[in-house]
């Protein structure tokens, strides 16, 4: 609703597919409105680039309402940008001032190889999930939904953890590039529910082992992950994952 647009200077990481590294390229976008989303501002840039015959900046995005977990970039040094509890697509340009210079980098971690420009490969998360992020049961064998009473407190705790969208910002923000928050959210969710009980020990050991195999770093309890998490997943889940892990290890 602002009448006058802002001018925003961007330093965007450009990296060709298959290249070992890339570099920052400077761009300027004019007539940026406060109510535009950050990605809409990049859309405008891309329109201009295509009109000039240049290749558009590639960035992953899909739902543009903060739930699919597809988008993600580091804006001026912070994963998902300066507004807490938001994904990149939820950032509005009202967070910035006329004349600002913003740096835009991909999520960086060895297990998240850069594919092109700001697009990274997060398939490591899928492989971790495949090691135990499920309840082993086939369609058809479920008892009535009310067969297991689950206290509201436990259901709420499970939901807090289950809210994870798998965007990878926790890894991107972690000084050690650890995936502890992501992995713990799934382990923690299932540990609050009776359905997850039979596979508890096995699940935590297997998912942690896969997380390590993928080459993620170890968690040093800095808590940067929680600060950038769009769904505000608490690091209490990391503590819970460790408890589950120790229990699993001791039971063999």
């Amino acid at each position: 609703m602002s009448d006058k647009g802002m001018t925003i200077h961007l330093k965007i990481w450009r990296q060709a597919r298959g290249a070992a590294s890339g570099k920052f390229v400077d761009y300027t976008v004019k007539n940026v409105l406060a109510e535009m989303s950050f990605l809409e501002m990049l859309d405008i840039l891309n329109e201009e680039l295509v009109q000039k015959g240049e290749e558009a900046v590639e960035f992953d995005n899909d739902c543009r309402e903060g739930i699919c977990g597809t988008c993600g970039m580091v804006i001026s040094g912070v994963a998902h940008g300066p507004y807490a509890a938001s994904t990149t697509c939820e950032i509005r340009m009202r967070q910035f001032k006329d004349g600002d210079t913003l740096t835009v980098e991909p999520f960086r971690a060895k297990p998240f190889p850069i594919i092109k420009d700001l697009v990274v490969d997060r398939s490591a998360f899928d492989r971790i999930q495949q090691e135990g992020g499920f309840v082993t049961m086939n369609v058809g064998s479920a008892p009535d939904g009310n067969a297991f009473p689950i206290s509201k407190e436990h259901a709420d705790k499970a939901m807090d953890a289950a809210a994870c969208i798998g965007c990878g910002a926790c890894v991107a923000a972690c000084p050690n590039a650890s995936a502890a928050l992501f992995v713990s959210a799934k382990i923690s969710q299932l540990s609050w529910l009776p359905q997850g009980e039979p596979e508890r020990g096995r699940r935590s050991l297997a998912m942690v082992a896969q997380m390590d195999d993928e080459g993620f770093g170890d968690c040093s309890n800095h808590g940067e992950c929680e600060a950038v998490c769009p769904k505000e997943i608490s690091i209490e889940n990391i503590a819970r994952m460790r408890r589950e892990f120790v229990k699993g290890a001791l039971k063999g």
Binding site: W13, F24, V74, S76, G77, V78, A79, A84, T103, E105, R108, A173, P175, N221, H222, G223, E224, E226, A227, V228, E232, I235
Partner: peptide, 13 residues
């Protein structure tokens, strides 16, 4: 990262 800063907020860094 070429430019990195603390997230602030709930961070315990």
């Amino acid at each position: 990262y070429r430019y990195a800063k603390n997230a602030g907020g709930k961070s315990r860094k």
